[in-house]
Design a protein around this nucleic acid. Structure first.
Lengths: 366, 366
DNA sequence: CTGAAAGCGCTTACAG
DNA sequence: CTGAAAGCGCTTACAG
């Protein structure tokens, strides 16, 4: 399994050249040398037309191009990048592809990067700091020209590695400013504030905040921490008579956590609205509530955070906080491509309340 | 924007070596040469400990390791792969990360590949054949040791490129068997059959099949075609009195399409159950139905296809066809890593009906 | 406008 | 057990 190309049964064909050739060449993939020979020009010229250098005449160029497509030649990425000393790729690491927020963010960054002719190399950590570190090492070894850390978890060693490498980086919410390193700060606090205000305005006074701060291994998620603090601050700021708040914090995958959160407090704690730390958690909350015959929003209001794609398809459509993917991806790519520009100020990413149908005034007799 | 590293303002420090050094070296990233010098051994020895070759003594090894971590050295991926002539990475191309089916599949393949020490390089095509082709070219240029095409769309040119390259490949549902090329055939037909039987058993006789075969550009999705055919075949096979079926085919993103499908037929066509070609479409169907005050499953039953993560969190939880990710990822990486093994037979992937709460007997007075 | 050659940073037979 | 050197397949000054 280690060497998928080995093929002992097949008698080796006599190698065409007397040089060292440990294996019969894999599949006759043409090299730049081959196209140069066939085209009757030098290797340097092939490279020039490949890379759009103006130095080659039109007739040569078109001839070379014909040969290239005749041979089905495409340059070796590794050799090319090695020689070029840098790549046109941006590394992006996210926590988990299954969570739509990360998938959507990755997609948005990819789209934006493509506008500048950059590709992205995407890695998922599954919330594990070890994977996180491994991903960063790998990306750094892959000589990416910038790295975006869009994870919920944090690893200080990985951060050190990045800083030490001098590769431009941007991270979400966490870390201190440093050379070549930008931080995009999502305005979680502002988001939470608008949520709480919205609920209070509707007449709610008994709020349940459902958190999902810890993963199974007991590791704390950084981005959630900020949302937690944002909620606390929002509550403190809203000086309203008899406002009561409760919290539950369940670990594990978001949707499951939301469902179990409801199971754990239902009937024990009184609340007329629940604020879920993410849309995924909100989805689980829906399930927990609805399985018990509770109607949303007539009996209980629910609000999420992230404005993931599916949130408007929930029943009822979820009121949630939007983190504008478009701004996020633009900021990210810009910070990576022009690390000098405004890295000195950290970048604020505003959030926005999207009111849909999961919030309403509390039930009269509640 | 093209050369993010250029820095004209800063006076160049005198280059330490008189050789060609176009730029001051980026960030003093250590090379294998540096660690060899510091450790007092040869470059070959460093490489040996890096790659776990047994040829180096324990004392040397641990000394070298100490130096490596002291320097924070990590090998250059490109140089390493170039020298090694192959990589330990599998290319996987999917249509769209936003669709949970693809995200989940990618994640599953990544996990499985990791068990063999392989990484994956993930590309999304956004359903565009051009992007599809570009992704394949790029992956081939990246010398991946296998390529998995897990897309809904198909591109014949890309397929040719892959076959010509001799790189082991696996694709989903589409294409003919060829050397080093496996096909995993999802049993869509069987899945559709169990769905139709399930519905008939429940008493349904008026089915609506909601398709999403075309993208905005009019391009037909291959995997959907098979499901369409599977449905037709299932209906034909079920010789039941007065079974009526209707179809709608709406293009665009799945969930939107589902919603619009209902909008377009509601009140015009009579049906007691809807079969959505994917879970995403089903999600939109839910929305379309529920926005009109229709209850699921009391008034109308709904079934999906894919068993994506969110389907059990829908309200009500969605009855759907499961495509076992675990088997799929296992087959995929096995086919890629041991292309000789069973590539001659195409691989069948069984599907399975997951009955949840979105299906029930039809409304009595319907 | 084009070619010859050095160099990118590793790995891997080949000698010792 | 270890080192010296060739080679991976490109790009890019440097000459012409």
């Amino acid at each position: 399994m280690k060497s998928p190309h080995t093929n002992f049964d097949k008698p080796k064909k006599a190698s065409s050249s007397p040089r060292r050739k440990p294996e019969p060449e894999p599949a006759g993939r043409p090299r730049i040398h081959d196209v140069a020979a066939l085209a009757g020009v030098s290797v340097g010229t092939i490279s020039a037309v490949l890379n759009g250098n103006g130095r080659v005449s039109n007739t040569t160029r078109s001839h070379v191009q014909a040969v290239i497509s005749e041979l089905g030649y495409h340059p070796d990425f590794f050799a090319s990048n090695l020689a070029r000393r840098h790549t046109q790729v941006l590394g992006v690491v996210v926590s988990n592809l299954q969570n739509p927020f990360f998938a959507e963010t990755a997609q948005a960054i990819e789209d934006e990067a493509a506008r500048y002719g950059y590709q992205i190399s995407l890695m998922a950590t599954n919330f594990s700091p070890e994977h996180h570190r491994a991903a960063v090492k790998q990306l750094l070894g892959a000589r990416i020209s910038g790295i975006a850390i869009m994870t919920s978890e944090y690893d200080a060693v990985a951060r050190q590695l990045i800083l030490a490498s001098g590769v431009p980086s941007v991270s979400l919410d966490v870390g201190k400013l440093a050379k070549h390193s930008s931080i995009i700060r999502v305005d979680s606090r502002g988001g939470m504030r608008t949520v709480v205000e919205h609920l209070i305005e509707l007449g709610h006074r008994d709020l349940l905040f459902v958190r999902n701060s810890y993963k199974k291994d007991g590791q704390r998620l950084f981005s959630h921490k900020l949302r937690d603090e944002g909620f606390a601050a929002a509550v403190r700021a809203c000086r309203v008579g008899r406002l009561k708040t409760n919290m539950v914090d369940i670990s594990g995958p978001g949707a499951d956590a939301g469902e179990r959160a409801i199971a754990s407090v239902f009937g024990k704690i009184h609340f007329s609205a629940v604020i879920a730390v993410t849309d995924m958690v909100a989805m689980g909350v829906y399930r927990g509530l609805q399985a018990r015959g509770i109607r949303i929003p007539e009996d209980i209001s629910v609000v999420g955070f992230d404005n993931t794609y599916f949130s408007r398809f929930l029943n009822p459509p979820l009121t949630t906080i939007d983190i504008p993917r478009c701004d996020l991806s633009k900021m990210t790519v810009e910070a990576l491509l022009r690390p000098g520009a405004k890295s000195k100020k950290s970048l604020k990413l505003a959030t926005r309340l999207v009111v849909r149908e999961s919030t309403a005034p509390p039930h009269p007799k509640a």
